[in-house]
Write a protein that binds this DNA or RNA. Sequence first.
DNA 1: GTCTATAGTGCGATAGAC
DNA 2: GTCTATCGCACTATAGAC
Lengths: 235, 235
Amino acid sequence: MTFEEFKHTALISMEEICQEIFAENQASIKIKKQAVAVKNLANIFDTALKLSNEKGFQSMSLRDLSRTSGLSMGALYSYFTSKEELLEMIQNQGRRLTRKVLTQQINADDPPDKMLRTAIRTHLYLTEIMQKWFYFSYMETKNLDKPQQKKSIESELETEQVFIDILDEGARKNLFVVENSVLAASVIKSMLQDWYVKRWKYARRRISVDEYAEFVIGFIESALKADPGSGTKNR
Amino acid sequence: MTFEEFKHTALISMEEICQEIFAENQASIKIKKQAVAVKNLANIFDTALKLSNEKGFQSMSLRDLSRTSGLSMGALYSYFTSKEELLEMIQNQGRRLTRKVLTQQINADDPPDKMLRTAIRTHLYLTEIMQKWFYFSYMETKNLDKPQQKKSIESELETEQVFIDILDEGARKNLFVVENSVLAASVIKSMLQDWYVKRWKYARRRISVDEYAEFVIGFIESALKADPGSGTKNR
DNA sequence: GTCTATAGTGCGATAGAC
DNA sequence: GTCTATCGCACTATAGAC
């Protein structure tokens, strides 16, 4: 699957997610017409992510959000009951899409080396189209309350586990040399996170998501290379 | 140099830095007795880092800082003229120590493979003893004003350049196989950052800084391994 | 469904006693 | 050098007009 195809699939999912959020939060949302609600919710989320990523969620006042989104203070409070609830809605939206897309794309029947490439590529593609959300989530997790923080941590470890499993299976089939799959998965994840956390750096260097994906896959496969010709340790 | 030796050297530098800050900010600092000032400054920085890393610098009110540090609001304002200035003082303190330690430790006459190991180890050791500051800096950079942000970005790219140079030199001497030294340095840096950004993860898994250093060095050297026996590409 | 106006709170910052 | 008391302001949240 190319990035363009991926984008098409995922953007449809995003539309679905916004509708789900509307359906699910009807207790907090005073608006009854779906068309109006979904349009405004998308606007609110988008603006909130933009402002938060510039100066942090706490520093973004609801007056900022009101001014930039074009909705009045009163209108905003028709979509959530408190600033904290807005934060939770944003977090849930992204977590849901992440899980949906990742499980959709990765096929457990593929051999581990193929699965590894697919997982890396899918993760990078997903964070590319949802860059603002991933950056937000990365930066704001510590400002959440304890139960929400726990969800974020679980979500992170869940993603890491996907890579641990692939590496273990690959080692079992002698496709990879893996001394410590937990640490290996961890550093792989850090490379994937760099793509959305340090977006400015890659944009400045004009590196596309496909170029980055190619490089990371090559680097990791080289590090994990089963090399029967050299049985020596590398230090 | 072991982590213990490193710690000893660096903590002395930290003391020096606090004195430098006092000397340099005498315009803002109303206190005249160095002993009192340095002691309270250390307390203020330490408490501010603790609270900020829990919930963000903006969310930490100066009343929080006052309560937790044991100093009154009035006393705090004897050490800085505004909350924003406090933030800048903290940023400068860390940047200064980082530069000091990194240039002290890395010996440009060593061969590239040794330099790479030293640079990785030094970086991890430094971020280990200054974990709170590095985490703070990582999370709060986007909340700084433009000139301060620029300094942070320059500092980041400077560190990355150290690795780019080592990799290029190593490739020149056929010690490493490096297809793209800029991207390679970038992913190396992301692994080093993970150590202080995701501290909770490694603490939970009881992984020490030396274990992490060993793993990262092994992983990277394996990825960069000059392997004359196999001239094939790895994909 | 969206607006404006405003209540109530907690903030950063300072003045002045000790 | 440190404290308490307080000012003015900007914030979140809501009530009520349209």
